[in-house]
Structure formats: structure tokens, C-alpha cells
Design a protein around this nucleic acid. Structure first.
Length: 772
DNA sequence: ACGACACACCTTTTT
DNA sequence: GGTGTGTCGT
């Protein structure tokens, strides 16, 4: 035990060893939050306060769950299998699989990912003859998911106008369709679990008694439904329910747009009468100037629980700020700075380039590519989302649950087998009239269409029959061949990668079977536990029946069903250029939870960061500021910030002012690098030794050349320059967007931000240069 | 059934 | 600017 608690600071130690009551841990960035969470679990078990089966730990991502399991098993020599550690969705899946009957789901229910959900909605709208101009599928999807995230079924949604009433109606229809197909969307996993526990007293009681300790990571990201589900699981303390150990950071709440409710932290304090609020403010990550910047900035937010990070590391270096003339030049600057960082011995993978929106990555990628620097971009297409993989999965889905219409439509004519849109239309009509799935409607079809559709059905059924006795990996292999997917891509010119991905699926299945214990022997159990396990309860009329051996697992769930839910819940990594030392490009959102020696925060401009669409909402800018806070706190030793005068976005050149966040940072922690470009772009360029002319001419983009001509055109007698920052007595600070007319009669269009866009006569208006 | 073209979209993301 | 989707013509 000494070992476990060794090296914890006083606050961490206090948190880890709290009594068995609900507690809120306010854990700042880099304060060792995961360590506290896992040590708490280990300590509870080691001191005999709880058995592994009494632990539930919830995270938001599979990555976080895995990390927790890995660390835990290195701390304790115990089988983590009895614990429920996983994502909200993963654990809800486990619950629903175990109690599928009570949840009114078919045993082989399948999970729709967002793509499938959207296609189901589109299909439904078409079948119901709904005007998709008036009710776009995406809006409806948003509407439905929002309602579900708040725990509302269609009948409970309040509609205030005819449009909303119709949406509610379609929501109801959607749920019916899902039920018919035996599929659930992501939000449904949670809502169905909530309803199951809310309605089923004995079951609720069972789990309340079982989970003595529920630990929640990133609590600030919970939505209303997740919070209510936790409340239900923990029960009231008077009833002797378990304790919730919530760890979160209100300053890092950046997911309000997807329903997260920071208010849950205060609600939790109130609802659970939290007596133990512990703040972890000791930061083990960043140097002083970086931390000062973060603290200074976030102090501008009201409505905080209040927290100030401190570090024992020295002040370190100042934050370096750079004003670029354009997005291209910004990219070039990043490359020069990175090169010198690497010259200092920094690994490429220790350098991160962050941006607010994905669209910004292109210019940077382009420049990195031209400079021959290896890089990886986060947020690409995941393994299980690739078209060819989804096709193969669809065949497997049909074998496990033929009523999944999304799967049916995806592959009924892929590879092509002469089943056209007409046949599908007819089949759809038949399915509608008889109220059955497309698969089940096939026997009603006659003629040529009937024959070809019948053959498809036969294909699926024979594949299912033939693979019944096979282990999952072999089953996958057979399906790849029987579906003729492999043949199809063999003939494709660019099919090599796709074939490789398909073959990769056999490996994925092998690995899955091993990790989840469907094979023989005791598995090394590290995967997130999305499945019912030995020790989980099944409730029947007589009471509670408990699995006592792994042998009981297959009766709850076939390996195939398990694998399919794994594929939906864990989309897999984006293309893993594993092991490669490459610079890291990502949005600020996806950087959350990561850390790097050096970080570039780019595009710090009004309208971009903070993003213009956030300015309208009252809470919007606060969330942008938290986002900036997250960005700053990613850096260990070196932090760079940049903004540009001119940027190409959505095919248009925009002139933005520097971000308001610069005014919220401590001046003494910033080091403004002198801009290369001020009065003359060309002169500025020439002074840069790093840019030789060859590089310039073969450069990343000939837009640079265009800029020169533009500059010289504008750099006429007016004395002012497009992109230049100016100050006006009444309108405040602004940026020159355009200059019209010649010397003497020049007028400038100026973006004053809050004061709006103005056109001023340069010979009259009193403008001052804002230079750095 | 497939390729060509027009058109709309464009903040952030996990499950 | 770029991508992805939808419709049309062959």
C-alpha cells in the first residue's frame, strides 16, 4: 500500500483516500487526474473496501478507458474483468446485452454509427414522403439526438410550432423504424439503459447494491442523460447506494455544443451533498510563463468553480507571439521555428500544431510537405468507417440480424449483382405494406427482381449456415470471399489498399476474440469491457441469476454480435503511421488530454479563434476561452502563438484582427517576435535569410506571387496597406480590408470588429497605425 | 450502372 | 477552395 500512495502530493493523497462518500475532484490540466482516479480504485480494492466487481469507472473515450485499465493492472495484480470500466456507451451496451429482454431489444440488436443513423433517417423521410427541403435529414438527426441526450422520448418533447410538431412525429416514426430493424443509435444506448433502470426496480436495486464506487472521468463533459443515469445507478445515499467519485475541470469544458452541461458539476455538489471538494492545482506539466498565461486568460471567465494552477518548474521561456502577413507566411514561420526546435534536439512528435478548425490544416500541411517534414494529421477516417470495411461489416450484420435495413441496402447490390433502384423501390413498398424489414419482404417479390433478390437472400443465409461452427476470424474470412468483395477489389485499379484493409479485418477479429475471451483459455484482459462478463447478473422471474463461469457468455451474446458492437463502438484508429516520428497536427478539441514539449497555437484571429459563430451566443466566447485554455495547457516547455493579417477561408480572402485573447494574457509572459512584414512585403521577405529564392519560386503556392502584385497595387500613394491594423478614435481598433481610389482620393474599407465594417475617406479620417 | 456535371456546404467530436 | 451529394445523360 505504501507503494501505491508513494509520490502523491497532499491533495492527490487526500483525494485518493477519501471516505466512501460522493466527492468532487476539481483537477486542473496536468495535475495528475488519471493517476488519482486509478490510484483511488487500486487503493479501494487493496484496502478491502470494495471487491473489483463493486467498481464502475466511466470515461468518454475508449482511449481513456484503455489507459485506465493499463495503469490499473500495472498497480494491482488482479483480474480487471469483474470491474465495469469503459465508456458510457460501452457500459450501457454491456447492460443492454445482459438484459436485452427487459430492455425489449432483440438479442442480436445492432448499433448504428452516425453514418448509418443518417442514412436510416434519409430513407425514412423518403418513404414517408416528407419534403426534405423543409425537414433536412441532418436537422432531424440533430433534433432526435438532442432530445435523447436530454432523456426525452418523442411524446415528452414539447413542440411550439408546426415544424417542431412534425419533427416530433418523425422522431416517433424513427424510433419505430429502429425497433423494427433491431438497431439502436448511440444516444439510444444511454436512453434505453436509463429507462431500463428507471422502470425495473429490482434490477436497479441490484446494480445500486453492486456498484459501491462509481468513478467518473471528465465529469464536466457529461450531458443531462448521462448525469441522470449516474444518479440512478448511485441511488440516494439514504437508500445505501454507492458513492460517486467525480473528477473534472470546469475550465476544460469544451463540448457544450454536443450537449455537455458543465452545470452538472454544481448540480452534483448539490444533489449528492458533496462535502469533499478537492482541488488539484499542482501542475506537473508546464513551465511558469505558460501556466501564468493560462491562469490569466481563464480568469476572464465568470461562473467558474475557481482554481489556479501552480508549478514547481521555473518560469521557463516566454510565449512567443508572431504576426504573419498571411496564412502562407504563418505556415512558413511555423516550419522555420520547428526546424530550429528540432535542431535543439526536440523530437518531431513532441511538436504539435493546433488550430481551431480543420480547414486551417491544409496550408500548413502543404508547407510541411514542401519542406519534407514528416507529419500526422489527427481526425482522419477511422478503420471501421472505411467504405470497404463497412461493406464487409454489413454482410456480417445481415447474417447476425437480417432486419438491419441499412446493412441490407449497403450491400444488396455491392458488388453489383443486377439489383437496381427499381427493384429496391418495389421491395421498399412491399416492406412498408407488410410492415417488415427489406430482407423479410423479399419473398413477396415476383419476376426478375424477385429472383435476383432471392439469390441475395440465399447468399446471406448460406453464408450464415456455413460459418455457424466456425470461429470468428474464420467466419470473417469466409464472408470476405463469399461476398465477392475481395474479387471485386482485386479487379479495381486502386484496390490494393482496400484489400489490405479487408484482410486486416481477420486480424482485428482474432485480436478481439482473444481480448474479450471468446477463445479458449484465460485471456489477457485489457480491452475495454463492453460485454457481459462472468459475475454479471441476469434477472429472471425468480430473482437474480449470476454467471459463474465464462462458459455462460456465449448464451448471452454470440462472438459475432460482440464483434459487431465492438466495430460500432470503437471505430478504431485513424491510419496509424505507428512508430513514425512525425509532427502532430490537430484541432484544439482533439488535443485535449494530450501534451507536447512544444505547441503552436495558430490562427489566433477574431472570427476564427474565438470563432465568429460563438460570438452570438452569450456563453459562446467563454467556451472559446476555455478552448484556448486547453490549447495553452498542452505545452510543456515551449509555446508559440500566431495570427495573420490575411487568410484564405472558404475561397475568400479574409482580413481579421488579432484575437481578443491576446489582451487577456500577461504582457510579461509574452515575447512579441518582430513581424517581418510591415511597410513593404518585399523588403520584409528579403531580410529573411531562411527563405532562399529557389524555395520561394518553387514555393508552396503561387498565391505568394499574387500577393506581391496586390500589395504593390495597394501600396500606392495612400500611405496605407491592406491588412494593416489601425486605430480610430470612435470605432476603436480595426483592420484595413480594402483600399479604393488613387492617391489623394483613397477610401479604405475597415473592419472594426465590434463596431462593424466602415468605409472611411483616408484623407479625412484620423487613423493611427497599430504597430508592434 | 456509371461517369460527368451542378450544387450546397463549410466549427469543434465521440460514441 | 475543397469535398461530398444529387441528378442527368449515355
Amino acid at each position: 500500500m505504501q507503494n501505491l500512495l508513494h509520490n502523491l502530493n497532499p491533495e492527490q493523497l487526500a483525494a485518493v483516500t477519501l471516505p466512501s462518500q460522493s466527492a468532487l475532484i476539481l483537477a486542473g490540466a496536468g495535475s495528475g487526474k488519471t493517476r488519482v482516479l486509478t490510484t483511488r480504485i487500486a487503493w479501494l480494492i487493496q484496502t478491502g473496501q470494495v471487491s473489483p466487481a463493486g467498481i464502475m469507472a466511466v470515461t468518454f473515450t475508449n482511449k481513456a478507458a484503455k489507459e485506465m485499465l493499463t495503469r490499473l493492472s500495472s498497480m494491482l495484480p488482479i483480474n480487471t474483468r469483474g470491474m465495469w470500466i469503459g465508456t458510457f456507451h460501452g457500459l450501457c451496451n454491456r447492460l443492454l446485452r445482459t438484459h436485452y429482454k427487459d430492455a425489449a431489444l432483440p438479442q442480436a440488436f445492432q448499433i448504428l454509427d452516425s453514418q448509418d443513423q443518417l442514412s436510416l433517417i434519409k430513407r425514412m423521410l423518403k418513404a414517408a414522403n416528407v419534403d426534405d427541403e423543409k425537414y433536412p435529414a441532418k436537422n432531424l438527426m440533430y433534433f432526435i439526438n438532442n432530445a435523447k441526450d436530454q432523456g426525452l422520448r418523442a411524446h415528452a418533447v414539447e413542440a411550439y410550432d408546426p415544424i417542431e410538431r412534425k419533427m416530433v412525429e418523425l422522431y416517433e416514426l424513427y424510433d419505430q423504424q429502429c425497433q423494427r430493424e433491431g438497431v439502436v443509435d448511440f444516444a439510444e444506448l444511454l436512453l434505453r439503459s436509463y429507462e431500463l433502470l428507471a422502470r425495473n426496480g429490482p434490477l436497479r436495486h441490484h446494480y445500486q447494491m453492486r456498484f459501491r464506487h462509481i468513478l467518473v472521468d471528465e465529469f464536466q463533459d457529461t450531458n443531462d442523460l448521462q448525469y441522470n443515469l449516474l444518479k440512478l445507478l448511485a441511488g440516494h445515499s439514504e437508500e445505501g447506494g454507492g458513492a460517486i467519485f467525480a473528477v473534472g475541470d470546469d475550465d476544460q469544458s469544451i463540448y457544450a455544443f454536443r450537449g455537455a452541461n458543465v452545470g452538472n458539476m454544481q448540480a452534483f455538489e448539490r444533489d449528492f451533498r458533496v462535502e469533499n471538494l478537492i482541488k488539484l492545482e499542482q501542475n506537473y506539466r508546464s513551465h511558469g510563463h505558460i501556466l501564468d498565461s493560462a491562469n490569466f486568460l481563464i480568469a476572464n471567465n465568470t461562473k467558474r468553480l475557481g482554481k489556479n494552477l501552480r508549478t514547481d518548474a521555473g518560469q521557463g521561456e516566454q510565449v512567443r507571439v508572431y504576426e504573419a502577413s498571411s496564412d502562407l507566411e504563418e505556415a512558413q514561420w511555423i516550419i522555420e521555428e520547428s526546424k530550429s526546435l528540432m535542431g535543439e534536439g526536440l523530437l518531431r512528435k513532441e511538436i504539435a500544431i493546433l488550430y481551431r478548425s480543420n480547414a486551417q490544416s491544409r496550408v500548413i500541411e502543404h508547407a510541411l510537405f514542401a519542406a519534407g517534414i514528416p507529419y500526422t494529421v489527427y481526425g482522419g477516417l477511422r478503420y471501421f468507417q472505411r467504405a470497404e470495411v463497412k461493406h464487409a461489416i454489413a454482410y456480417l450484420q445481415l447474417m447476425d440480424n437480417p432486419h438491419n435495413d441499412s446493412a441490407f441496402l449497403r450491400v444488396v447490390n455491392f458488388p453489383t449483382r443486377g439489383i437496381g433502384v427499381r427493384s429496391i423501390e418495389q421491395l421498399q413498398m412491399a416492406a412498408d405494406t407488410y410492415g417488415v424489414s427489406l430482407f423479410a419482404a423479399v419473398p413477396y417479390m415476383t419476376g426478375k427482381a424477385g429472383t435476383s433478390l432471392g439469390n441475395f437472400v440465399k447468399l446471406v443465409e448460406s453464408a450464415r449456415f456455413e460459418t455457424q461452427q466456425l470461429a470468428l476470424p474464420e467466419m470473417v474470412r469466409v464472408v470476405l470471399e463469399r461476398s465477392t468483395l475481395l474479387d471485386f477489389y482485386q479487379k479495381e485499379k486502386e484496390g490494393a489498399d482496400r484489400i489490405e484493409n479487408l484482410e486486416q479485418m481477420v486480424n482485428a477479429a482474432t485480436q478481439f476474440v482473444q481480448e474479450e475471451g471468446f477463445g479458449q483459455g484465460a485471456p489477457a484482459h485489457l480491452g475495454p469491457q463492453a460485454l457481459p462478463q462472468a459475475g454479471d447478473a441476469i434477472l429472471n422471474q425468480d430473482g437474480i441469476e449470476v454467471f459463474d463461469s465464462d462458459a455462460a457468455l456465449p448464451t448471452v451474446m454470440s462472438p459475432l454480435s460482440a464483434f459487431l458492437s465492438h466495430a460500432s463502438l470503437e471505430a478504431g484508429d485513424a491510419q496509424a503511421q505507428a512508430g513514425q516520428d512525425a509532427m502532430q497536427l490537430m484541432t484544439v478539441h482533439s488535443a485535449k488530454g494530450l501534451e507536447f514539449d512544444a505547441v503552436f497555437i495558430t490562427g489566433l484571429e477574431e472570427g476564427l479563434f474565438p470563432h465568429e459563430s460563438s460570438a452570438r451566443e452569450t456563453e459562446g466566447v467563454d467556451e472559446e476561452r476555455r478552448l484556448m485554455y486547453v490549447a495553452i495547457t498542452r505545452a510543456r516547455r515551449r509555446l508559440y502563438m500566431s495570427f495573420t493579417q490575411q487568410r484564405m477561408l472558404h475561397g475568400q480572402t479574409r482580413f481579421n484582427m488579432k484575437s481578443r485573447f491576446f489582451d487577456e494574457l500577461p504582457e510579461e509572459s509574452l515575447k512579441w517576435l518582430s513581424p517581418r512584414v510591415q511597410t513593404s512585403w518585399f523588403a520584409g521577405r528579403k531580410s529573411q535569410t531562411a527563405w532562399d529564392d529557389a524555395e520561394f519560386r518553387n514555393g508552396t503556392d503561387n498565391r505568394i506571387a499574387q500577393q506581391i502584385s496586390q500589395k504593390s497595387a495597394n501600396g500606392n500613394g495612400s500611405g496605407w496597406r491592406v491588412g494593416e491594423s489601425v486605430a480610430h478614435a470612435k470605432f476603436g481598433e480595426g483592420v484595413i480590408v480594402n483600399i479604393e481610389g488613387g492617391a489623394g482620393a483613397a477610401r479604405a474599407q475597415i473592419n472594426f470588429g465590434k463596431a462593424g465594417m466602415k468605409v472611411l475617406d483616408l484623407s479625412v479620417a484620423k487613423l493611427e497605425r497599430v504597430g508592434r
